[in-house]
């Protein structure tokens, strides 16, 4: 009740975060903030510490001492975020001995929710995820796109303000991917969670995001934060509009610069 607007507005805030693995500095001076309800996409050259960022925000890795990590306006350790954000890694990581419904409710089961109610809720969500009639199927009976939707459903079932999606569509073919993007926006507009979304694909980053963060080469930090002021709901034709292309040009230029840096760096090390 007494929270100031800025506290509620900023769901997640990172300031001056470093992370070192042995002799490799994965992330240096990483600073970003995510307002509640925003869809933020993160792009950058490979090995730029995007996954390190996610692992820290998911609570799996502790950043080096010195930085500031704030969640819901309160400063905290990374491990305190375990169970407080809903995390979806690159692979679907479904459990092969659980059927679609039981895979979807695993996170709820872990937090101690009643299985029956969770199953009933998952059953009601099936149509929205295009899985009607597949509730009793096992992962090895599903296609890649369907498995990915089950994994997304698991992430949505675990109702947390912040969702972390790590290249959820990376393994899908281009056609399925663009369908899944539009579908995700549709679902997101109805549920309105805060999303942090990693991708390799610049089109995807612009098409989905309210804001695109471009990361620098390793050690990673935010090079550019570009607001995407394109109207929602967004349709497939948007990708070819001049406004879209302009944003894309700007982001590609930033990535290109960073890719060159990391390419030169690895080239030097190899030589």
């Amino acid at each position: 009740m007494t929270e100031t607007p800025t506290e509620t507005a900023r769901l997640l805030e990172l300031r001056g975060i470093d992370k070192t693995f042995g002799t490799v500095q994965a992330v240096r001076g990483l600073t970003l903030s995510v307002p509640a309800g925003e869809f933020v996409t993160v792009v950058g050259p490979s090995g730029c510490g995007k996954s390190t960022l996610f692992n820290m925000v998911a609570g799996l890795d502790e950043p080096d001492p010195g930085g500031v990590l704030r969640f819901k306006g309160r400063s905290c350790h990374a491990h305190e975020l375990l169970g407080r954000v809903s995390f979806m890694p690159q692979r679907d990581l479904l459990l092969p001995w659980r059927n679609v419904i039981d895979n979807a409710i695993i996170a709820n089961e872990i937090e101690g929710a009643d299985r029956k109610t969770a199953r009933a809720r998952a059953l009601r969500m099936l149509p929205e995820f295009g899985l009607t009639g597949f509730e009793a199927q096992y992962p090895h009976q599903l296609s890649g796109g369907m498995r990915q939707r089950v994994a997304l459903m698991r992430t949505f079932m675990f109702e947390r303000e912040l969702m972390l999606l790590d290249e959820p569509f990376g393994a899908l073919d281009a056609l399925t991917r663009s369908m899944m993007q539009r579908w995700l926006l549709d679902v997101w507009e109805r549920h309105r969670r805060t999303v942090l979304f990693i991708t390799h694909d610049v089109d995807e980053a612009i098409f989905l995001g309210d804001r695109v963060l471009v990361m620098t080469a390793r050690p990673g930090s935010v090079k550019l934060a570009r607001p995407v002021d394109l109207p929602r709901p967004r349709s497939a034709e948007l990708v070819t509009s001049p406004e879209f292309i302009a944003i894309k040009r700007e982001i590609l230029a930033a990535i290109e610069e960073e890719s060159m840096k990391s390419f030169m760096a690895t080239g030097m090390r190899a030589a």
Binding site: A58, G83, S86
Partner: peptide, 14 residues
């Protein structure tokens, strides 16, 4: 056991 699977369940607070 796949360490990524362990990480996922840990992120759910297991």
């Amino acid at each position: 056991v796949d360490p990524r699977q362990i990480a996922l369940l840990r992120s759910f607070g297991a």
